[in-house]
């Protein structure tokens, strides 16, 4: 009987550890919600979500989050222009063309690319890519959206490539053989059979990539500047939601002030955006798995 009670206690204890993850999610939502609620008592929701000026640290503060959102979306869009086609093409090469030996070498190298700390990518963007781009676009400022966008794309590329490749490799061999038997080339098979068959898996990878780009912090904090600006011009300094949180955290804004609460309000918006994207991605992946199992 004694061992049975012990077993019961152990199982409960293990359950508590597993449930900690739910507590983490709850904690995130609670912390963000409480401070956001306080923030919204002083700043109307409409002003926050539709205002076009973000100057919370000025003498006459304005709390329109759109410039930060626009900055985030511009950098993310540039990153996607790099990461999605390149990631997908790499995945097609690795899944449909590459000999085993090549795959064995390339995949770990891509893993290294994915494992480089983001602060290092930030240095790379500021010190290497920006000067390089300035030779092509002399009007480009030292801080801008283009350089961090491109570097972020390179950073996310391995994620897109490996998840897309997984999805394509899960497509049954019979489908490929069917296409080859009809005289299709490898390109036709890859583009007309394999990619469409793996479509929901690839889309899931793409959405996860967008979510990563939106939440990425250090590259933009280092190379994009700190000037909230509602613009589509990739050559001028701007500020993203994440970079703003870093900027305020670096100063000594006293807790409990409105400025302090802004980072939680921006964080809440960021959390909702990425969480929504993650849910869609998970749902698509589940659907993909159901089709091929």
């Amino acid at each position: 009987m004694h061992t049975r009670r012990l077993e019961w206690i152990i199982e409960r204890a293990l359950f508590v550890c597993a449930a900690l993850s739910v507590l983490t999610t709850a904690g995130i939502i609670l912390v963000l919600a409480v401070e956001t609620f306080e923030f919204l008592r002083e700043v109307p929701v409409a002003e926050f979500l539709t205002g076009t000026e973000w100057t919370p640290l000025f003498a006459t503060p304005r709390f329109g989050v759109l410039p930060l959102v626009a900055g985030t979306l511009l950098v993310s869009a540039i990153a996607m222009v790099v990461a999605l086609p390149m990631g997908l093409l790499s995945a097609i090469y690795l899944s449909e063309y590459a000999p085993d030996g090549v795959r064995r070498i390339v995949k770990p190298v891509l893993e290294v690319l994915a494992g480089v700390p983001t602060v290092v990518y930030g240095y790379f963007a500021l010190m290497f890519v920006t000067p390089l781009l300035q030779r092509v676009f002399p009007q480009m400022s030292g801080f801008n959206a283009l350089s961090p966008g491109i570097v972020m794309g390179i950073m996310i590329l391995p994620l897109v490539s490996s998840l897309s490749e997984d999805a394509m490799r899960a497509v049954p061999r019979g489908l490929r053989e069917g296409a080859y038997a009809l005289g299709a080339t490898r390109m036709q098979t890859a583009l007309q059979i394999v990619v469409p068959a793996a479509f929901s898996g690839i889309t899931a990878a793409f959405i996860l990539a967008v979510s990563r780009a939106v939440g990425e912090t250090m590259i933009v904090a280092i190379a994009a500047g700190q000037q909230p600006r509602l613009t589509a011009n990739p050559f001028v300094p701007l500020e993203t939601m994440t970079a703003y949180i870093v900027q305020v955290s670096l100063g000594d804004t006293p807790q409990g002030t409105l400025e302090y609460r802004t980072i939680f309000a921006v964080g809440m918006l960021l959390f909702l955006m990425t969480f929504g994207l993650n849910l869609v991605s998970t749902w698509l992946r589940e659907r993909f798995r159901e089709v091929y199992s």
Binding site: A18, A19, S21, V22, T24, T25, G27, I28, V31, L32, V34, E35, L208, S211, R212, V214, G215, E216, T217, T242, I245, V246, S249, I263, F264, G267, L270, F271, T274, F275, N278, L279, S281, T282
Partner: peptide, 23 residues
């Protein structure tokens, strides 16, 4: 719990910073 963990893995790290700051 599994779904929750999968979603947590994709939450931006800076959000964890806000959690740490608050808690």
């Amino acid at each position: 719990i599994e779904i929750n963990i999968a979603n947590l893995a994709a939450v931006p790290s800076i959000i964890y910073g806000l959690l740490g700051l608050g808690v």
